[in-house]
Design a protein around this nucleic acid. Structure first.
Lengths: 234, 234
DNA sequence: GTCTATACAACGATAGAC
DNA sequence: GTCTATCGTTGTATAGAC
């Protein structure tokens, strides 16, 4: 039995979650179609992708507030006036990015619940799944983490609630294992928070992992194995 | 034997590191005295403290880039023109904050090396010491973590180097324990990075710890105990 | 040392031609 | 759909009175 989902499983992730390619951007398009003036999906999606990716490049390098719309115009090749056919305002752009990512995460972690009954396999699936999500949507995660302060109170709270919900999924799996006599753990809440912290490192500390040549698979494996040690498994 | 340093030890930390009170701000003052036009230490320190604390309040709430000097003027009660007697420029203010904190951390972790010979006690001291530092200088740590992007390349690199040096101190203690037959661990580098990540949570996720009513002592203890489990201690 | 007044560059956003 | 031209605002920073 492999410690990491097979290649085919990774492909299945991508298909099931529509995390990349046309399907992904089509979803992004449909999610804030209402806020745009552009009717043609073909041209809208192409420019939307340009705008989002340029935003990640600029904002993740010098910060969203420090990035001007003139920077964004230069980077995308779309004029200042043209940008406003795609976004309502600068703040709206950040808000949409957070909304799209949260919507996706919400959908995916909703599927994770009750999918596996064995707590060990459940924890493995949560860790591998989340690391994989972060890997594919790296700039989205990093942007939302670093720019959360700039969003409105309500949206900030929704992001924090999502993190708490994720922690709770880990806690539930841990508690199930304890009831089945497979784990022992004094403080499941703190342990779950520590797992979440380690998962978030995968987008927060890319500089460190590239320096130490740590692969996604090795990192997920490391988190999982140390978690089992902390749970006194076997 | 207590699991956490005694009250007297905590007091000793404060005295030894001059982390708060007049002594601390006197050091801050002396560290960038050259960049100021104010001669009188008495008035300079009082206003310097006002400026730094107002910066933390504003920047940690809405981001340093989003904070204007007009905001800072209002918050401190010092006029726009007056501010420039204390700071060279807005960016200089952020740069000084990072410099002061890095200087302090550097000094403290320099003392941690070779202070304890027993690897278990060494790891405990590093974890407790760092959590304590973060507790006392919470807004400084948070500011430097979130606003690092806004600083110049060279200064960013120095901050990353400091984190790598901290990781290496943890790795050294782990390796010492392995050689002494006390620990077993496949990947000390990744384990050290995970400890650093958990320590940083203490300033990054205050909202979560307050919600779950986790004390500084309980959190340090939790990190330490799980580390020993990951190291197969005993 | 601290203030008021102001310079002037850069910002987000919009109007209207094409 | 996309552009250029421009609006009003706000930003950082400074000069000079007190």
């Amino acid at each position: 039995m492999s410690d990491w989902p097979h290649e085919t499983t990774i492909s299945a992730f991508k298909r099931a979650w529509a995390l990349e390619g046309e399907a992904f951007w089509l979803t992004v398009f449909s999610m804030h179609q209402e806020k745009m003036q552009i009717k043609s999906p073909k041209v809208a999606i192409a420019n939307l992708q340009k705008i989002f990716e340029a935003t990640f490049k600029l904002a993740n390098a010098k910060g969203f507030q420090a990035m001007s719309l003139r920077d964004l115009s230069r980077e995308t090749g779309i004029s200042m006036g043209g940008l406003y056919a795609y976004i309502g305002s600068k703040n709206d752009l950040a808000s949409v990015i957070e909304g799209v990512l949260r919507n996706y995460i919400d959908k995916v972690i909703g599927e994770l619940v009750n999918e596996y009954l064995d707590p060990v396999e459940s924890l493995r699936a949560i860790i591998c799944g989340e690391i994989f999500m972060i890997q594919i949507l790296n700039p989205w995660y990093y942007f939302c983490y670093m720019e959360l302060k700039g969003l409105e109170r309500e949206q900030q709270q929704q992001a924090l609630d999502l993190e708490l919900r994720f922690d709770r999924i880990l806690v539930d799996a841990i508690r199930t294992g304890i009831k089945q006599g497979k784990f022992s753990c004094d403080n499941p809440e703190l342990l779950a928070a520590s797992i979440t912290a380690q998962l978030q490192q995968w987008h927060l500390k890319q500089w460190k992992f590239k320096l130490q040549e740590v692969s996604m698979e090795a990192y997920a494996q490391h988190i999982f194995e140390n978690l089992l040690l902390c749970l006194n498994h076997r």
